[in-house]
């Protein structure tokens, strides 16, 4: 041990031997570290739509987020740890949201509150609505509901606390903000003819090239993918996986028929058994 320069220990790249992983010192340090972090999550004072009203109601006296150390809603992103995306994210609004997110210091967390922020919600089909904030910034907790009640939001906040509790200082994936250098900002979307995510520029180029060649532009013809969910389900039920190849016209093949027939027979026999018992 004497040969070890103790300063090396401060280097995050310092290799931790396998047997030392999950070391007692680190775990209890993690505990204290996480306890203090989760007990003072400062959300950003930032409401988007209907859910924001429920967020305010949660912060008010009846549900009272200060019991969780979250009452200090900061108007500045520089002082906040948590962004509660509370409501419909429009294409026009996603630009400021990404900017705000970039301005938040690490460690930062994002809660997608309500159906709209999670996946577009009832307004998803609209021309100005982003189908989920997670297409632009990483989301830690999703809270379904339209709008989630204050208690549902509190449950989400507790889920976030649990997530923070589960993070370990020993695992660099959990605490990337101690990595080397600042993390990369999320590229700000561009409001062109429609919203354009710079990260997808290459993909758009490919699509455009395809369109120039007269191929379908921007559409994934998805009969196969549409069947995907159904196929997964069938596979789960133990039926033959061949159904996955079913086309959009859904010609049900022998295996499914057999499985279905079997199920029905089984139900029938169960019913009969019950009837005879009575």
């Amino acid at each position: 041990m004497s040969s070890l320069d103790l300063r090396q220990l401060h280097d995050t790249e310092f290799p931790i031997p396998d047997e030392m992983n999950g070391n007692v010192a680190i775990t209890s340090l993690s505990k204290i570290y996480n306890w203090s972090r989760r007990s003072s999550i400062w959300p950003m004072l930032f409401g988007l739509a209907c859910c924001a009203i429920e967020m305010i109601a949660t912060a008010a006296a009846r549900y009272d987020t200060s019991r969780f150390g979250m009452e200090v809603m900061r108007a500045s992103p520089r002082q906040s740890d948590l962004m509660i995306v509370s409501g419909t994210v429009t294409k026009k609004m996603v630009v400021p949201i990404v900017r705000l997110y970039n301005q938040m210091p690490e460690p930062k967390y994002v809660i997608a509150m309500g159906a709209c922020a999670s996946g577009g919600g009832p307004f998803k089909e609209g021309y100005n609505v982003v189908s989920g904030i997670d297409q632009y910034i990483p989301v830690d907790v999703y809270i379904p509901g339209c709008p989630p009640t204050p208690q549902a939001l509190l449950h989400g906040l507790i889920s976030l606390q649990k997530k923070i509790d589960g993070q370990s200082l020993a695992n660099m994936d959990d605490v990337p903000w101690y990595g080397v250098g600042p993390s990369d900002p999320v590229p700000v979307p561009i409001l062109g003819p429609d919203i354009i995510d710079p990260r997808q520029m290459e993909l758009i180029r490919q699509q455009a090239a395809a369109a120039a060649n007269g191929q379908a532009y921007g559409i994934r013809e998805l009969p196969a993918a549409a069947m995907d969910v159904a196929a997964k389900k069938v596979a789960k039920a133990g039926a033959a996986g061949a159904v996955a190849a079913a086309t959009a016209t859904a010609v049900v093949d022998e295996a499914t028929l057999a499985a279905r027939l079997e199920r029905r027979m089984e139900a029938l026999s169960r019913k009969r058994a019950l009837a005879s018992k009575n």
Binding site: D140, V141, Y142, I143, P144, G145, Q151, A152, H155, G156
Partner: peptide
């Protein structure tokens, strides 16, 4: 209503 989730 307690449906909060880490993944959607």
């Amino acid at each position: 209503y307690e449906l909060a989730d880490y993944d959607r």
